[in-house]
Protein backbone atom coordinates (compact mmCIF):
# COMPACT_ATOMS: atom_id res chain seq x y z
CA UNK A 1 0.00 0.00 0.00
CA UNK A 2 1.18 3.49 -0.85
CA UNK A 3 0.16 6.87 0.49
CA UNK A 4 -1.50 9.20 -1.97
CA UNK A 5 -2.51 12.82 -1.47
CA UNK A 6 -4.57 15.00 -3.78
CA UNK A 7 -6.98 17.91 -3.75
CA UNK A 8 -10.54 16.87 -4.42
CA UNK A 9 -13.17 19.57 -4.84
CA UNK A 10 -10.89 21.98 -3.05
CA UNK A 11 -10.12 19.78 -0.07
CA UNK A 12 -6.84 18.01 0.53
CA UNK A 13 -7.37 14.31 0.97
CA UNK A 14 -5.09 11.36 1.37
CA UNK A 15 -5.30 7.64 1.66
CA UNK A 16 -3.35 4.48 1.20
CA UNK A 17 -3.93 2.51 -1.95
CA UNK A 18 -2.71 -0.55 -3.80
CA UNK A 19 -0.80 -0.02 -6.99
CA UNK A 20 -3.74 -1.39 -8.93
CA UNK A 21 -6.36 0.84 -7.28
CA UNK A 22 -8.05 2.95 -9.92
CA UNK A 23 -8.69 6.61 -9.29
CA UNK A 24 -12.42 5.99 -9.55
CA UNK A 25 -12.18 3.28 -6.89
CA UNK A 26 -10.32 5.64 -4.59
CA UNK A 27 -12.91 8.36 -5.14
CA UNK A 28 -15.87 6.05 -4.55
CA UNK A 29 -14.62 3.61 -1.97
CA UNK A 30 -12.14 5.64 0.05
CA UNK A 31 -13.51 9.16 -0.24
CA UNK A 32 -17.14 7.96 -0.44
CA UNK A 33 -17.84 10.42 -3.23
CA UNK A 34 -20.31 8.12 -4.97
CA UNK A 35 -21.53 10.60 -7.55
CA UNK A 36 -18.80 9.39 -9.89
CA UNK A 37 -20.14 6.16 -11.35
CA UNK A 38 -18.71 3.06 -12.95
CA UNK A 39 -20.66 1.92 -16.00
CA UNK A 40 -18.11 -0.16 -17.86
CA UNK A 41 -14.67 -1.68 -17.62
CA UNK A 42 -13.21 -0.53 -20.93
CA UNK A 43 -13.15 3.27 -20.53
CA UNK A 44 -16.00 3.64 -22.99
CA UNK A 45 -19.05 4.89 -21.13
CA UNK A 46 -17.92 8.09 -19.42
CA UNK A 47 -20.03 7.61 -16.28
CA UNK A 48 -16.85 8.18 -14.27
CA UNK A 49 -15.82 11.39 -16.04
CA UNK A 50 -14.14 13.90 -13.73
CA UNK A 51 -11.69 16.74 -14.12
CA UNK A 52 -8.03 16.18 -13.23
CA UNK A 53 -5.84 19.29 -13.32
CA UNK A 54 -8.53 20.96 -15.37
CA UNK A 55 -8.79 18.22 -17.96
CA UNK A 56 -11.73 15.91 -18.63
CA UNK A 57 -10.61 12.43 -17.61
CA UNK A 58 -12.29 9.06 -17.20
CA UNK A 59 -11.45 8.17 -13.63
CA UNK A 60 -11.27 4.49 -14.57
CA UNK A 61 -8.33 5.12 -16.89
CA UNK A 62 -5.98 6.32 -14.16
CA UNK A 63 -4.51 4.67 -11.15
CA UNK A 64 -5.09 6.54 -7.91
CA UNK A 65 -1.32 6.84 -7.56
CA UNK A 66 -1.11 8.72 -10.83
CA UNK A 67 -3.30 11.41 -9.33
CA UNK A 68 -0.90 12.03 -6.44
CA UNK A 69 -0.65 15.79 -6.04
CA UNK A 70 -3.36 16.45 -8.59
CA UNK A 71 -6.26 18.84 -8.49
CA UNK A 72 -9.39 16.73 -8.88
CA UNK A 73 -12.91 17.92 -9.40
CA UNK A 74 -15.95 15.64 -9.27
CA UNK A 75 -19.69 16.11 -9.64
CA UNK A 76 -19.92 16.78 -5.91
CA UNK A 77 -17.88 19.93 -6.44
CA UNK A 78 -19.96 21.41 -9.24
CA UNK A 79 -22.81 23.12 -7.42
CA UNK A 80 -22.82 26.84 -6.72
CA UNK A 81 -21.30 27.88 -3.39
CA UNK A 82 -24.73 27.98 -1.79
CA UNK A 83 -25.34 24.38 -2.81
CA UNK A 84 -27.76 25.23 -5.59
CA UNK A 85 -27.51 23.76 -9.09
CA UNK A 86 -24.97 25.50 -11.31
CA UNK A 87 -25.90 26.76 -14.77
CA UNK A 88 -25.28 23.44 -16.50
CA UNK A 89 -27.01 21.39 -13.81
CA UNK A 90 -29.98 23.75 -13.85
CA UNK A 91 -30.22 23.48 -17.64
CA UNK A 92 -30.23 19.67 -17.42
CA UNK A 93 -33.14 19.91 -15.01
CA UNK A 94 -34.95 22.56 -17.03
CA UNK A 95 -34.72 20.56 -20.26
CA UNK A 96 -35.17 17.06 -18.87
CA UNK A 97 -31.62 16.12 -19.79
CA UNK A 98 -31.59 13.13 -17.47
CA UNK A 99 -33.76 10.16 -16.64
CA UNK A 100 -32.21 7.43 -14.49
CA UNK A 101 -29.38 9.78 -13.58
CA UNK A 102 -26.58 7.24 -13.80
CA UNK A 103 -24.69 8.80 -16.72
CA UNK A 104 -25.62 12.30 -15.59
CA UNK A 105 -22.56 13.20 -13.49
CA UNK A 106 -20.29 12.25 -16.39
CA UNK A 107 -22.44 14.20 -18.80
CA UNK A 108 -22.32 17.30 -16.62
CA UNK A 109 -18.54 17.02 -16.30
CA UNK A 110 -18.19 16.58 -20.08
CA UNK A 111 -20.47 19.54 -20.72
CA UNK A 112 -18.50 21.73 -18.32
CA UNK A 113 -15.32 20.76 -20.12
CA UNK A 114 -16.81 21.69 -23.49
CA UNK A 115 -18.17 25.04 -22.39
CA UNK A 116 -14.81 25.97 -20.88
CA UNK A 117 -13.21 25.97 -24.30
CA UNK A 118 -16.19 26.62 -26.53
CA UNK A 119 -18.69 28.98 -25.02
CA UNK A 120 -21.19 28.73 -27.89
CA UNK A 121 -20.96 25.21 -29.30
CA UNK A 122 -23.15 24.10 -32.17
CA UNK A 123 -25.44 21.10 -31.83
CA UNK A 124 -22.97 19.05 -33.85
CA UNK A 125 -20.03 20.16 -31.72
CA UNK A 126 -21.93 19.14 -28.61
CA UNK A 127 -22.80 15.74 -30.04
CA UNK A 128 -19.20 15.18 -31.04
CA UNK A 129 -17.88 16.30 -27.68
CA UNK A 130 -20.07 13.70 -25.99
CA UNK A 131 -18.44 10.87 -27.93
CA UNK A 132 -17.00 9.44 -24.72
CA UNK A 133 -20.26 9.45 -22.77
CA UNK A 134 -23.04 6.92 -23.22
CA UNK A 135 -26.60 7.60 -22.12
CA UNK A 136 -29.14 4.81 -22.54
CA UNK A 137 -32.22 6.75 -21.41
CA UNK A 138 -32.53 10.11 -23.10
CA UNK A 139 -31.56 9.52 -26.72
CA UNK A 140 -29.28 12.55 -26.09
CA UNK A 141 -31.89 14.95 -27.50
CA UNK A 142 -32.49 16.72 -24.22
CA UNK A 143 -28.86 16.53 -23.12
CA UNK A 144 -27.85 18.39 -26.25
CA UNK A 145 -30.66 20.85 -25.69
CA UNK A 146 -29.59 21.39 -22.08
CA UNK A 147 -25.99 22.10 -23.03
CA UNK A 148 -27.08 24.52 -25.74
CA UNK A 149 -29.29 26.25 -23.20
CA UNK A 150 -26.52 26.31 -20.62
CA UNK A 151 -24.38 28.16 -23.13
CA UNK A 152 -27.09 30.79 -23.42
CA UNK A 153 -28.24 29.78 -26.90
CA UNK A 154 -31.76 29.57 -28.23
CA UNK A 155 -33.11 26.03 -28.09
CA UNK A 156 -36.49 26.63 -29.67
CA UNK A 157 -35.27 25.13 -32.95
CA UNK A 158 -34.80 21.73 -31.40
CA UNK A 159 -37.96 21.86 -29.35
CA UNK A 160 -39.66 18.52 -29.22
CA UNK A 161 -42.57 19.61 -31.33
Amino acid sequence: MTEVTMTVNGKTVSGSVEGRTLLVEFIRNDLHLTGTHVGCDTSQCGACAIHVNGKLVKACTMFALEADGAEVSTIEGQANDDGSLNVIQQAFKEHHGLQCGFCTPGMVMAAADLLKTNSKPTELEIREHLEGNICRCTGYHNIVKAILAASGQDVSNIAAE
Partner: peptide, 21 residues
Protein backbone atom coordinates in the same frame (compact mmCIF):
# COMPACT_ATOMS: atom_id res chain seq x y z
CA UNK B 1 -43.41 20.34 -14.33
CA UNK B 2 -39.70 19.76 -13.80
CA UNK B 3 -38.58 16.60 -12.10
CA UNK B 4 -37.99 16.72 -8.39
CA UNK B 5 -35.63 13.74 -8.56
CA UNK B 6 -33.19 15.61 -10.80
CA UNK B 7 -31.40 17.65 -8.17
CA UNK B 8 -29.99 14.65 -6.32
CA UNK B 9 -28.75 13.07 -9.54
CA UNK B 10 -27.24 16.32 -10.78
CA UNK B 11 -25.45 16.94 -7.49
CA UNK B 12 -24.00 13.45 -7.34
CA UNK B 13 -26.10 12.52 -4.33
CA UNK B 14 -28.25 9.82 -5.90
CA UNK B 15 -28.19 6.59 -3.93
CA UNK B 16 -27.72 3.62 -6.21
CA UNK B 17 -27.17 0.15 -4.82
CA UNK B 18 -23.43 0.22 -5.33
CA UNK B 19 -23.27 3.51 -3.42
CA UNK B 20 -24.42 1.75 -0.25
CA UNK B 21 -21.72 0.81 2.23
Amino acid sequence: IKRREDARFLLGSGRYSDDIT
